[in-house]
Amino acid sequence: MRVRLIDVAKVIRSKNAGPFELTLDIILKDEEIFQKIKEARIITPELISHMYHTSIDDILGIIYFDPAYAVKITLKRRIPSGSFGETDIYGAQQHAPLAAMEFELRV
């Protein structure tokens, strides 16, 4: 089944985790969809590096946080927060590629 992430998530957000890292949070609507996404390994470093036009080495971690039905992805920031060429000091508006994400999921 084709699934749009925005239909099964209640939170899709980005934020600095310190001035050198950006962290993306996806909080799924319920445990069932969370477990399915986790088991199917939908979110991979390859996928995120492709979405954000960044090197796979810059994907610092993908962590599932079961108590919140959440997936957390941490990337190296494009440049440190506030350095010349910055577009988003707080890193709070870097979620759009995830919000547009679609994937196949066996139901």
Binding site: T23, I27, I63, P67, A68, A70, T74
Partner: peptide
């Protein structure tokens, strides 16, 4: 509370 535990950090655990 759970969602906030994720906020602004790279590893919630």
């Amino acid at each position: 509370t759970c969602a906030h535990t994720l906020y602004e950090k790279s590893d919630p655990y």
